[in-house]
Simulated assay, not measured.
Amino acid sequence: MTDDLHALAGPYALDAIDDADERRLFEAHLAGCETCATELREFRATTARLGMAVAEAPPPRLRDRVLADIGHVRQLPPVPAASPRRTPVRPVRPRRWRRAVAAGLAAAACLVTATSVGVAIRERQRVERTEAAYQEVASVLSAPDARSATGRAPGGGTVTIVASESRGRVVVASSGLRTLPSSKAYQLWLIDSGGPRSAGLLPDDRSRPVVAGTWRPSDKLGVTVEPAGGSVRPTTTPLVLLSPA
């Protein structure tokens, strides 16, 4: 059980406090602590974005295909009918065309199987990458020393960060930032007394939170508009400059 109840806002937002007594203590503390209440709201907003990061729309026309096919699906197996005794019939030797059809079907089955395996492997790799990214973000949000800050960009939209000194990482989530032309991109910077360090670009799908660079306690996070592909040094004034409390 931690002695610093203020550090439990992140784990509480993720429902990651297993100790029942610790959870009750934090909930009692939360009722009278506006700082923790604010942090909890920010953590929950970022957690909601995490859910959007792994959510995917169903394939187009999936509903139509299901409804069209359902009428051809057998609901119950057929009941075998009793057959009268018949005189055994000698087996007929299969013709060559039957063997040719069987060989063709076997080849087609192998091709379909190979294609399906390739698709399954690519899908599994995509899922593993998504899970790894989610786990890294969740690790920062659930850190006992996680701290957050939110800023509003001049052109509209907000940027929220959650930083953890113990994890050495900062999670960045944005909402409502104006759409840039294809020749421009939003670039993240970690800025301290030694100057700015690039922390990568915001993805095109900005509903997805990202883990940016290596976080230091003296860092601030800035967001600038740069040429597509990014810059070595900032070429514009930061839209937001955030430092978690």
Score class of each variant (00 low, 15 high):
8 L>V: 15
8 L>F: 14
9 A>N: 14
9 A>K: 13
10 G>C: 13
10 G>K: 00
11 P>N: 09
11 P>E: 06
11 P>Y: 09
12 Y>T: 07
12 Y>V: 08
13 A>S: 07
14 L>N: 00
14 L>H: 01
14 L>D: 00
14 L>R: 00
15 D>P: 00
16 A>M: 01
16 A>R: 02
17 I>E: 11
19 D>L: 02
19 D>R: 07
19 D>H: 05
19 D>Y: 01
20 A>G: 07
20 A>P: 14
20 A>C: 12
21 D>Q: 12
21 D>R: 09
22 E>V: 09
22 E>I: 08
22 E>L: 14
22 E>G: 03
22 E>F: 11
22 E>N: 13
23 R>G: 09
23 R>D: 03
23 R>M: 05
26 F>D: 07
26 F>E: 11
27 E>V: 10
27 E>W: 06
27 E>N: 10
28 A>C: 10
29 H>F: 15
30 L>C: 10
31 A>W: 13
31 A>S: 09
33 C>Q: 10
33 C>W: 04
33 C>Y: 07
33 C>M: 12
34 E>R: 05
34 E>W: 00
34 E>G: 08
36 C>W: 02
36 C>E: 10
36 C>M: 06
37 A>F: 12
37 A>W: 10
38 T>C: 04
38 T>P: 04
38 T>V: 06
38 T>Y: 05
39 E>Q: 06
40 L>R: 13
40 L>D: 08
41 R>M: 03
41 R>C: 01
41 R>F: 05
41 R>A: 05
42 E>Y: 01
42 E>R: 01
42 E>M: 05
42 E>V: 10
43 F>W: 05
44 R>P: 09
44 R>H: 07
44 R>S: 10
44 R>K: 13
45 A>S: 08
45 A>V: 04
46 T>M: 09
46 T>G: 05
46 T>A: 10
47 T>E: 11
47 T>F: 15
47 T>S: 14
47 T>P: 05
48 A>C: 06
48 A>W: 03
48 A>T: 08
48 A>V: 00
48 A>P: 02
48 A>L: 01
49 R>F: 02
49 R>V: 02
49 R>I: 01
50 L>G: 03
50 L>D: 02
50 L>S: 01
50 L>H: 00
51 G>K: 00
51 G>R: 03
51 G>H: 03
52 M>Q: 08
52 M>G: 12
52 M>K: 03
52 M>S: 04
52 M>L: 07
53 A>N: 02
53 A>T: 04
53 A>D: 04
54 V>W: 05
54 V>L: 13
55 A>I: 01
55 A>R: 02
55 A>T: 03
56 E>S: 12
56 E>D: 10
56 E>L: 10
57 A>R: 12
57 A>Y: 14
57 A>W: 14
57 A>D: 15
57 A>C: 11
58 P>T: 06
59 P>M: 04
59 P>V: 04
60 P>W: 09
